[in-house]
Simulated scan of single mutants.
Amino acid sequence: MALQPLFFNPVPYKSFIRGGLQPGKAIVVQGIIDTQANGFELNLHHRLGIAFHYNIRFDQNVVVRNTFENGAWGKEELSGPMPFRRGERVLVTIFCHRDHYKVFVNGEETHTYKHRFTKLEDIDVLGVWGDIQLGDVQP
């Protein structure tokens, strides 16, 4: 998917995912990372927690993946590349498969994350926080 001209949404940002997630559904987020960014995060929420937390941390040069369930964070996953650069435009696509997510950054597959919260239809909110000028979002 090509980068489109940007208009900006306020951050923090929340958007409803109609019908919840299901295999084959893609979430697309476009923006420009702030030049002095500490980081930003994309979260897929359900009523009681966060099914998928995708947290870009420039100070640690890592992308953290995790789940917040029953009032606690799970074990962080840190493997894989750091595909983000401060001051650059970015297109993130989170593709939902039956048993995992695949994340693409600017068209390149960067991370996978096995579902820990498996009631996909209950995942109904996309949240974006942090140091990004948020453009087009397709929840």
Rank of each mutant, 00 (worst) to 15 (best):
V137D: 02
F40K: 06
L120Y: 05
V64I: 15
L48E: 15
R18S: 15
F84M: 09
L6S: 12
C96W: 09
Y13F: 13
L44E: 03
Q30H: 04
R116T: 02
G107N: 06
L44T: 02
L126T: 00
Y13T: 04
T112Q: 08
A51Q: 01
P10W: 04
R116C: 06
R116F: 01
A26G: 02
P5D: 07
I27K: 00
N106S: 14
P5N: 08
F52T: 05
N106V: 10
Y113L: 02
C96F: 10
L120P: 05
K102S: 14
N55R: 07
H97C: 11
L134V: 01
L126F: 00
H46P: 05
H46R: 09
I132Y: 06
G130S: 09
Q133L: 15
V62H: 07
Q30F: 04
G71Q: 08
L6I: 10
K102Q: 14
L91S: 12
F104A: 11
D131H: 07
D34C: 12
P23G: 09
H97Q: 13
F52H: 08
G49I: 07
V62M: 03
D122N: 12
K102V: 15
E88M: 12
T35I: 13
H45W: 13
N43H: 10
V62I: 12
P23F: 07
D122A: 15
Q133K: 15
V28D: 01
I32C: 14
R116N: 04
L48Y: 15
H111M: 10
P139E: 09
P5F: 02
Q138V: 09
A51M: 05
L3K: 10
P10K: 11
I132K: 02
F95E: 13
F68N: 10
V125T: 14
E41V: 01
A51P: 00
T110E: 08
R85S: 11
W129G: 07
H115L: 04
L134Q: 02
G135M: 05
P12G: 03
H111C: 10
I33C: 10
G19C: 13
L44H: 00
N61S: 15
V125D: 01
V28H: 10
F58C: 05
P23D: 09
K114M: 12
F104R: 08
G87N: 06
A26W: 02
I33N: 07
F40R: 08
G74Q: 07
R86H: 06
W129C: 14
Y13E: 00
V137R: 02
A51N: 04
R116A: 03
T118P: 06
G19M: 08
E121Q: 15
L126V: 01
F40L: 03
I123M: 08
N9V: 04
F84V: 10
R47C: 14
V11D: 00
M82G: 05
L21N: 03
F52Y: 15
E69L: 15
N9Y: 05
Q138K: 12
F8V: 05
H111P: 03
R98H: 11
K102I: 14
V125R: 01
M1V: 13
T110F: 09
L134P: 00
Y54N: 01
L48M: 15
F16C: 08
G20D: 08
L21F: 07
Q133T: 12
V64W: 00
T112N: 03
V28T: 13
I32P: 03
V128N: 00
P83R: 01
Y13Q: 00
